[in-house]
Nucleic acid binder design. Structure first.
Lengths: 142, 142
DNA sequence: GTAACTGCAAACCTTTTGCAGCTTG
DNA sequence: CAAGCTGCAAAAGGTTTGCAGTTAC
């Protein structure tokens, strides 16, 4: 039932290996797009397994985010925060404004821009966040 | 008391010219960085003038956003949405992660990237949102 | 066995809404 | 005067928290 590598991952991050955490992690891992706390909660509740409490999901996501196993997006969709597995590679997303479908984008167009910006502004650049909005092929046809 | 050009702006957008709207607009116009509903509310309350109700501020910001006089940011800071005057030019911001100071950036590094992306993904690109995080010169010295 | 986690219920915080009374054009 | 705002209070929706009981190590 427990996947050995997830167990290891938790161990190396000093995260106690509970069923709930395992379930939440597996769901996040299986998703290619960021999802909300509520979605995770519903997926687990939908399965006939042991149910989970919504506040537990919130707490688990907090722990995962702290340990940087996952990323919490700054962008809120309909007032809800989004979470996704931390692929530990720089990534951006393309969101469909019609159906909210989100796909990851290959590569980052920012390049050396951050260094130029540091010189221009005096700020020490830490990171950036780029979200692109558009209409996906399906929604364009409608 | 009323600024004539704001009055005109409201008129041409079919927005009734009330004291409250005028106050909210003036505050937004005077700010170089995006601010929250609460901040606007506090600024008005702090003045000895006629106070305003928080829900009125929300409603005014909604109207202004609809009419595109202002922009509502997708990024939430501490769970709060941010608003800024619509300069009707493409703009990005640089946020200090220590003090939350926000400055606008000159120019956009995205260039023709959107067209490349359209070909790559099949999405019709509508807009993008870029937020860069760093540490401002003041906070670096501390 | 003990420290840490979960479930539950209540609280919290931002934002929205219904309604009565007031303002603007 | 009529349409549309505002204030107030209450509700809604997402997220957090205190506490008692349970689980992992």
């Amino acid at each position: 039932m427990y996947t050995e590598d997830v167990k290891q991952l938790f161990k190396s991050n000093n995260i106690k290996n509970t069923q709930q955490r395992h379930m939440v992690y597996s769901i996040l891992k299986s998703k290619k797009q960021p999802i909300t706390t509520e979605e995770i909660y519903k997926i687990i509740s939908g399965k006939l397994e042991k149910p989970i409490n919504l506040s537990t999901v919130y707490r688990i996501l907090e722990v995962f985010t702290e340990k940087e196993l996952i990323l919490k997006s700054q962008i809120h969709i309909n007032g809800k925060a989004l979470y996704e597995i931390n692929h530990r590679e720089h990534r951006h997303h393309l969101i469909c404004i019609k159906c909210n479908k989100i796909i990851p984008i290959k590569g980052c167009p920012l390049g050396e821009y951050e260094q130029i910006l540091e010189k221009q502004t005096g700020y020490k650049i830490i990171e950036h966040n780029l979200e692109i909005k558009g209409i996906c092929p399906k929604c364009q046809k409608r």
